[in-house]
């Protein structure tokens, strides 16, 4: 029984990890090399079907869809990585300090978090970006700030649990200062909790960016992004080029599937530890 469970979670972590790793590698290579120039148009290849030369076919301007998907996934992943980098480090930092020290600051901060999370984050992001004008930089900052509360909450509640542990008391008795206790002793003990949170957050960031681009408030129009391409490809779904939407959709599904499996697997691994 126990063994089965561990097998199952290994399966999720491994499969998710491998899918995610392959996508990341392809995207990384794509930063330097794609089979075709993603923005090179070719009138003769308008909406050409998949072939050996163009495995995903061509779009309405005769551009190679595979190259554009790789480029678009790159845009999406870059945004997601930056959002999580900022959101997680700020959120973990704030959550660690408020959880450790408690008091009024903690109280106020948690109410602010409640306020932010009271609204669906994508809707909030849409409104803010619609006001600020859509640009890559605005999207990153906006999503990063909206993602801070989820990291801060998880970190804070784990910190409250950890700070009363005996090993923390012993560190105090050795004369360790608060910052040493928080960052050298407690934070490494929170990795099993933070890892799945970061993975799931990353998943949500990918979805958020894709949804926003799909709805037209994402990155600028001349830059391929998975969400924007999906919205464009809809026009040709029934009229001649279903492979366009299918290719882009498949890329999104694989990315989300890999990340979800990884996040869910890590979460189960933590619970069973």
């Amino acid at each position: 029984m126990q063994k089965n469970k561990i097998k199952k979670l290994n399966w999720m972590v491994y499969t998710g990890g491998i899918i995610t790793a392959i996508i990341f590698i392809i995207v990384l290579i794509g930063r330097f090399y794609t089979p075709y120039d993603p923005s090179a148009m070719n009138g003769q290849l308008r909406l050409a079907g998949p072939s050996l030369a163009h495995i995903m076919g061509c779009d309405n301007f005769g551009r190679d869809i595979f190259s554009r998907v790789v480029e678009g996934a790159g845009t999406t992943l870059t945004i997601a990585v930056l959002v999580i980098l900022i959101g997680a480090s700020v959120g973990i930092f704030i959550g660690a300090l408020t959880g450790y020290f408690g008091g009024v600051v903690d109280e106020v901060f948690m109410r602010v978090c409640d306020l932010i999370t009271a609204f669906p984050s994508i809707m909030l992001a849409l409104i803010i970006i619609a006001i600020l004008s859509p640009s890559e930089k605005n999207i990153i900052w906006c999503l990063a700030i909206l993602f801070i509360p989820s990291f801060a909450r998880v970190t804070r509640s784990e910190m409250v649990k950890q700070k009363s542990q005996n090993y923390v008391k012993l560190a105090k008795l050795m004369g360790a200062g608060s910052f040493r206790i928080i960052f050298v002793h407690i934070l490494p003990n929170m990795v099993p909790v933070l890892l799945p949170t970061i993975t799931i957050g990353f998943n949500n960031a990918v979805l958020a960016e894709a949804s926003m681009s799909f709805l037209g408030v994402g990155v600028s129009a001349n830059k391929p992004s998975l969400g924007r391409m999906l919205s464009e490809s809809q026009n040709f779904l029934v009229t001649g080029a279903p492979w366009y939407a299918i290719s882009v959709g498949l890329a999104i599904v694989l990315l989300i599937l890999g990340l979800s499996l990884l996040g869910e697997g890590l979460q189960q691994w933590r619970r069973n530890r």
Binding site: N166, Y167, K169, L170, A171, L173, M174, P188, N189
Partner: peptide, 14 residues
């Protein structure tokens, strides 16, 4: 310096 009752939990696990 102090020594605790529970050596199992007194040290940093990681």
């Amino acid at each position: 310096a102090v020594v605790f009752q529970e050596p199992m939990t007194a040290l940093d696990p990681v």
